[in-house]
Computed example of a mutant assay.
Amino acid sequence: MQANPVVWFEIYVQDMDRARAFYETVFDCRLEALGAPDGEAGGMQMLAFPSEMECAGAPGAAGTLVKMDGVPSGPGGTMVYFSCEDCAVEQGRVVGAGGSVFRPKFSIGPYGHAALVTDTEGNMIGLHSMA
């Protein structure tokens, strides 16, 4: 396995417009429509986070919000942590975007800081920063 082994993630949602508004507000970015993989278009919508797919071996992972028939969103799945300059900034946008703060910014010792928040679809995500 290579260092930083995650290369892709999907966050499942029930209401794409609501989820898009949450993530675009919290991370101050624009999500772009991504075509579903061949043979998967039925009942699937995808919005991609900003990424540079040509940067093979670079740290970080590309990913999307996905709305797919029969796939629930919510707690209990994989936790995705988003890199931030100061996770308190993004945490400060969460409630206004319709989410909630589960655990405000806290120290993780020499590994920086983290915050745990819940999006509008019930998914818990992590925010990580060294500051």
Rank of each mutant, 00 (worst) to 15 (best):
Ala33Met: 09
Ile108Asp: 04
Gly112Ile: 02
Lys105Gly: 00
Gly39Met: 08
Glu90Leu: 03
Phe49Asp: 00
Lys105Tyr: 00
Ile125Asp: 03
Val66Gly: 01
Asp86Ala: 06
Phe22Pro: 05
Gly122Cys: 11
Val71Asn: 00
Arg103Phe: 04
Val71Phe: 02
Cys87Val: 05
Asp86Leu: 03
Ala48Cys: 07
Gly122Phe: 05
Asp119Ala: 01
Cys84Ile: 11
Met68Lys: 15
Ala58Asp: 14
Phe102Arg: 14
Val26Arg: 01
Ile108Trp: 06
Ala41Leu: 13
Gly77Met: 12
Gly39Arg: 06
Lys67Phe: 05
Thr120Gly: 00
Ser73Leu: 03
Val26Tyr: 01
Arg93Lys: 06
Gly96His: 07
Pro104Ile: 02
Glu90Met: 08
Met68Thr: 04
Asp69Lys: 09
His128Gly: 09
Ala114Ile: 12
Ala115Gln: 03
Pro59Ser: 10
Ile125Lys: 08
Phe106His: 13
Gly43Asn: 08
Phe22Asn: 01
Ala36Thr: 06
Ala36Asn: 06
Val94Glu: 07
Leu127Phe: 08
Val66Arg: 03
Gly43Leu: 07
Phe22Leu: 01
Gly77Val: 12
Pro110Glu: 09
Ala21Lys: 06
Val101Cys: 07
Ser107Val: 04
Leu127Gly: 05
Pro104Val: 01
Gly76Lys: 04
Glu40His: 15
Asp86Pro: 05
Lys67Ser: 09
Phe22Arg: 00
Gly70Ala: 10
Gly99Asp: 04
Glu40Thr: 14
Asp38Val: 15
Lys67Val: 06
Phe106Asp: 13
Glu32Arg: 14
Met46Thr: 02
Thr78Lys: 12
Glu32Pro: 05
Ile108His: 05
Thr120Asn: 05
Leu127Ile: 08
Gly112Val: 02
Glu32Gln: 13
Asp38Gln: 15
